[in-house]
């Protein structure tokens, strides 16, 4: 049977890609963030996953407001990045795992999640940057990809409770998969930040701490807020925590052990965090 080896969570803001492009990983501004990644890379080398199931949000590369799915699961043999319009390099393509994708899709629909299925989709920096951080020297990604996009960009957003339930259903699908894959679950985005309006630049370390303190042992605590309340607490882009909540759900209901966590304020307009959890 397939094995879920653990979860890797990280911020994904485009400016990280700019820092990588410039080779700024050891610059004073960026070092505290990038110093979180050697332990991530060591852990990934130890647990040797061959599939990544990634909860993320698209920022207008594949989805636009004309057709915005709340939850979208990729089922493509290959996923490409492309020009996102703000100067990042076009990142490497990803090999898909259509059979596992369809198993996840069938399990979710059976569990009454009315998802969108994408047999063709572009994936943006929210996927590429966490991979670049995890495997900076890879010529090709060492894992196949099952991407799951959550609408965190335009209200109405799914509730934290619904995202946790989605993740748990995905986790049941992964653990029931007949293959012998080793699966790492990823959640990308966050933590607190707000790009728009008079509150632009808003950060909330107290709420970030609440999230980080409960992620491993009690993720249901993060579902006591509505999506609107999360936008208030975390900022209008901090709602990307929904991706983390769903990813945590996929790790199952048992408490998880924290392998590492890193928190640094600020990178660009964002409170940045990186976490690795594994079965306790």
């Amino acid at each position: 049977m397939a094995q879920v080896v653990g979860g890797y969570f990280t911020s994904h803001v485009p400016s990280i890609g700019g820092a990588i492009q410039r080779g700024d990983q050891q610059a004073e501004y960026w070092k505290p963030f990038f110093d979180g990644f050697p332990p991530v890379r060591q852990w990934l080398a130890d647990v040797a996953p061959d599939v990544a199931v990634v909860f993320y949000n698209d920022h207008g590369l594949n989805f636009f407001l004309d057709a915005m799915p709340t939850f979208a699961v990729g089922a493509a043999p290959r996923y490409d990045n492309a020009d996102e319009g703000w100067g990042l390099p076009v990142y490497k393509s990803f090999e898909g795992h259509p059979n596992l994708s369809w198993h996840v899709i069938e399990t979710l629909v059976e569990a009454e999640f009315d998802i969108t299925t994408c047999q063709k989709m572009l994936v943006d920096h929210a996927l590429s940057i966490p991979f670049e951080l995890a495997w900076p020297d890879a010529e090709a990604w060492p894992v196949r990809l099952v991407p799951i996009a959550i609408n965190t960009v335009q209200f109405p957003l799914p509730s934290p409770r619904r995202c946790l339930a989605l993740g748990r259903a995905v986790g049941r699908a992964l653990r029931s998969w007949k293959g012998d894959e080793r699966i790492v679950v990823m959640g990308t985005g966050g933590l607190s930040h707000q790009l728009e309006g008079a509150r632009a630049g808003f950060l909330n370390p107290d709420y970030d701490r609440f999230c980080l303190d409960h992620l491993a042992d009690d993720p249901a605590a993060l579902t006591t807020h509505s999506a609107e309340e999360v936008a208030e607490l975390a900022g209008t882009q901090g709602v990307e925590i929904l991706n983390w909540i769903a990813a945590r759900g996929a790790l199952g209901e048992a408490p998880q052990a924290m392998v590492m966590r890193n928190y640094h304020v600020p990178i660009s307009n964002t409170a940045a965090a990186t976490v690795v959890l594994e079965p306790a």
Binding site: P32, D35, G36, P39, Q42, W43, D46, V47, G201, L203, P205, D208, R209, L212, A257, M258, V259, M260, R261, N262, Y263, H264, V265, P266, N269, A271, E278, P279
Partner: peptide
């Protein structure tokens, strides 16, 4: 203003923290 927000971050929250118990990956190593 963004950098100044760092002053409000509790040291227990900020920075790199490695899990206190030997992780399964370390045991595997």
């Amino acid at each position: 203003m963004l950098v100044a927000a760092r002053a409000g971050v509790d040291p227990a929250l900020g920075g790199l923290h490695i899990g206190s118990r030997p992780s399964a990956s370390a045991r595997q190593r």
